[in-house]
Structures are given as structure tokens and as C-alpha cells.
Simulated assay, not measured.
Amino acid sequence: MTEGVIEGAEIECPLHGARYCLKTGKVRAVPAICSIRVYPVHVVGNDVLIELPV
């Protein structure tokens, strides 16, 4: 998804064109049928911090 196109609160997969909600990871457009994982993100100064599960 690092190459995905973001529009509003959705991201489009560059490989198959499926769309996902950036906030929940839920599928918004086929061909995907499974949600993707999302992680809380915080911007602190010039740093982007991603909360990963332990």
C-alpha cells in the first residue's frame, strides 16, 4: 500500500485497484474481500510515529 493513491479517507491499492477506508481498514471497493490492518499514527514535530501491537 506504500504506492497507493489516497483520496479523502480512502486508499486505492496500486496492484488490484481495491479501495480501503484509511480509518478502519474495511473494504470500500472490490476486488478485495478482506479488510487490511490499520494502526494509530501520530505526528510529533517532523516525526511520524506508528503504534504497533506488542
Rank of each mutant, 00 (worst) to 15 (best):
T2C: 03
E3Q: 12
E3H: 13
E3T: 13
V5I: 15
V5E: 15
I6T: 10
G8V: 04
A9P: 06
A9F: 06
A9W: 06
I11W: 03
E12W: 05
E12I: 11
P14S: 15
L15P: 01
L15A: 13
L15C: 09
H16C: 11
H16K: 11
A18S: 15
A18K: 02
A18W: 07
R19V: 12
R19E: 08
R19A: 08
Y20Q: 03
L22N: 06
T24K: 06
T24G: 01
K26F: 00
K26S: 03
V27K: 00
A29C: 14
A29S: 15
P31E: 14
A32V: 15
A32K: 10
C34P: 00
S35R: 07
I36S: 03
I36E: 00
I36H: 04
R37Q: 07
R37N: 11
V38R: 02
Y39P: 06
P40Y: 03
P40E: 09
P40L: 01
V41N: 05
V41Q: 05
V41T: 14
V43G: 06
V43P: 03
V44F: 06
V44L: 14
G45T: 10
N46G: 04
N46A: 13
N46W: 09
N46I: 09
D47H: 11
V48H: 10
I50K: 02
I50T: 11
E51L: 08
L52P: 03
L52I: 11
L52W: 04
P53Y: 01
P53M: 01
P53V: 01
V54P: 00
